[in-house]
Amino acid sequence: MYTLQVNGISHTVDVPGDKPLLWVLRENLKLTGSKYGCGQALCGACTVHLDGHPVRACVTPISAVGEQAVRTIEDIAYDAVGAKVQETWQNLNVPQCGYCQSGQIMAATALLTDNPTPTDRDIDEAMSGNICRCGTYPRIRRAIHKLANGGV
């Protein structure tokens, strides 16, 4: 039995300790916004925040989460930066298939929280772990710059 803090709510789940956080979120807690893409931390579609830091939920065993606060895409609108990121993503038509965008938005929110005026180099370092097969990178970059210039 593991007790988790997810989006400010405490949940207790009865799962094996090696079950990744991603699958606990998706299957046990029915929070399907975080996506499965690779299962090996290669694509970033499963990115969630643990105590504010982006992590790959698909390789994070539930036993490693402990008391760290888990935050997912379903809750990021309640974060001032996250809400701005979502709004800008919509306004610039960033998503295409949209499957990777939960992870992209979690990564971008972490970036802009840590560094409100990232350079292109900063953007590349923060976002290159998140694959977008539709190739929305130019718009992700543009959205982040827009947020940086608009002040988050």
Binding site: H53, C58, T60, P61, D114, N115, A126, G129
Partner: peptide, 28 residues
């Protein structure tokens, strides 16, 4: 691969810590 960087404390940059993916044991 992921343009992972050393960072100030040798454990990655705040936006992509080593521990974002690497656990205290081999996984997957």
């Amino acid at each position: 691969d992921q343009l992972v960087m050393r960072g100030e404390d040798n454990h990655g940059v705040p936006t992509l810590h080593c521990s974002a993916c690497h656990q205290d044991h081999n996984v997957a």
